[in-house]
Design a protein around this nucleic acid. Sequence first.
DNA 1: AGATATCCTGACCGAATGGTCAGTAACTTG
DNA 2: CAAGTTACTGACCATTCGGTCAGGATATCT
Lengths: 222, 222
Amino acid sequence: MTLCKVPQDTGEEKGEANGAIRERNERAILAAAERIFAQHGFRGASLQAIAHEAGLPKSNVLYYMGSKRGLYVRLLERMMARWNALLDDISVDDDPAEVLESFIRSKMQLSRRHPEGSRLFAAEILGGAPFLQDYLRGELRDWVKARARIFEQWSARGLMDPVDPVWLIFLIWSATQHYADFEAQVLGITDKDALTDSDVEAITGFLTQVILKGCGVTPRQA
Amino acid sequence: MTLCKVPQDTGEEKGEANGAIRERNERAILAAAERIFAQHGFRGASLQAIAHEAGLPKSNVLYYMGSKRGLYVRLLERMMARWNALLDDISVDDDPAEVLESFIRSKMQLSRRHPEGSRLFAAEILGGAPFLQDYLRGELRDWVKARARIFEQWSARGLMDPVDPVWLIFLIWSATQHYADFEAQVLGITDKDALTDSDVEAITGFLTQVILKGCGVTPRQA
DNA sequence: AGATATCCTGACCGAATGGTCAGTAACTTG
DNA sequence: CAAGTTACTGACCATTCGGTCAGGATATCT
């Protein structure tokens, strides 16, 4: 198994060596749009608000991005790319504890590193995933199926309890994503201004401990 | 401990015995608005769309609800009331397994019975909870604190592992809410049109099993 | 039946929406 | 420096937004 690498986000989206100005402005627009779309969803976000957030006139946003729709799908694609970057292959011979822990940890890091992107994705799904149907029913479904098969084999080998692998994946997704998507709730209840790195580390440890034990996976080396 | 009762939703919001027409139309509008707000968030939803969904002219919606804002907060309040209805008191002397299972089960039922309300709430939190700050930092925080204290005492008595009680509550919330909020993702990946009652029952059992075991809670009678 | 309160809605309002475009400014390269 | 590309933007457009209102339709009650 190749360890999940959460790549340092260099920001280099695509080559496009030319156009330093274009690069800088596009980056500003994308960052601003991610925040606004995450906060208000596709329909609720306005180009005016995005432009203001980016510190540019509205016309300039359209000059670079063409249309609201185009900007939105570009953001979704960027987030899916980040996601795909940590979807590594695993095999039946890997250690379940190691795989599950690295799964939880990398997913947690992704949500933490890109909270707005995470919320953008959540808003898209909440609204019925109008732009992501194909991705869900295609790539992502296949990936889940492949993982599920391996979990089942682990169960058969007695390396973990015979739990439904798909629901286990959903459990991990929901638990990790929660801290980005419901950040306002988490902060409001815990009375904090932000989650610190050590908070996140503690939560990751908690989730790893509970989920592994809950599935009957013996930590480290079977 | 009083078992969590998920009340049959009779729909009787408040008395208002008079005005049968008003009652009927308000109900239709609230149901329609819940769908639209859940799908598009507060800003993204339009009164036109809500009116169309309810089969009424836009003016009629405003006649009954006064304003978009008022309609929205009324829906939020209705959802919080449903939520509060299953926030029962527990004591240190209750059986942890029983409490946790009933907690998971009733939360799951709430999300299933009111998926649009659940998504409406999720969208509100996603957008930074502009209308629910007070609720989160008040009532809900107190409720979480009270529960957390009891979980800690259980841990001290050796009835469960010494896990952080607040993160345990968040884990249960996220895992149960996921099936309503991310329904589009769940259905897309599992290739289903809808989750059946037996699906939900199986998921509830799965979550109960994993979470209880993961926290070192021995099922049924310590 | 008549009076009264409730119900209903098309027309309208100013503001904001996503998007176009013509024209200008600023770089880059020969 | 001149030509050419890229960057920029204010003015404008049709449409939709939340909300108002006058006035008619309908129900309810004595």
